[in-house]
Amino acid sequence: MIESLEGKRGVPRNRPPFPVTQGYLNKPTVVNNVETFALAARIAVYGGDGFAALGTKQSKGTKLLSISGDCLRPGIYEFPFGVSVREVLEACNAQDTQAVQISGAAGTCLSAKEFDRKIAFEDVATGGSVMIFNRQRDLLEVVRNFAHFFVHESCGFCTPCRVGTSLLKNLVEKVYTNHGTADDLKDMSYISQVLKTASHCGLGQTASNHIADTLKKFPEIYHKRLLVEANFEPAFDLDSALEDARQITGRKDEMAYL
């Protein structure tokens, strides 16, 4: 954002130095979201005691949650930190929930077993997004959507995020179209790890969370689509690659189909 303000390409800066010491035009800069400024103002006006009385020991105050997906009452909710995912689901009247994606596409995917976990910095941290998916949803569709999203979001500055998000998207598509194998799942898991450890900024470091999370918590969404429990299936489809040449030459004979 600061780079863009300065009229440069919108790519993340090297840190340190952090914006608090060298931000906009290399001057100290505060970068925070609206919610933080609003809460800071509330504390400034009404004092910190009332704020600190809410929430947990490590996460004081309240959190705005933007709840969407499979529930009867989506919308913006304010909860004290420490609220459980189950309480949130009850508040918005979500039924038959399969999974909850907390903190957006780059966040954490929780399975029903984890609905007693708390929304707080010390447990499930969130920027505020809560997406609910019921049991009618095909979670691989969700994964696919997120994978495409990150290809689009990657700025292209660093290798792991620029290339890795596309590799992951291609592998998700391969599995989705029933061409995936066990080896492809291993690759997805490893590429996810490389993005997490080597990416330049927070986007790349979290761009594979949805895949790592679902591979671990919902392996069946992948396994039920694997072509065979074989180790390898080429990503290259010879037959479709030959189609252009068949069209151009007008060949339909047996030898044109390998």
Binding site: N14, F157, C158, T159, T197, A198, S199, H200
Partner: peptide, 21 residues
Amino acid sequence: PHGSCRLCTVMVNGRYESACT
């Protein structure tokens, strides 16, 4: 330093960082 290729990623006091930046 640019810090884009990420080849120089090392572990510094338990955290991943690019050595060039």
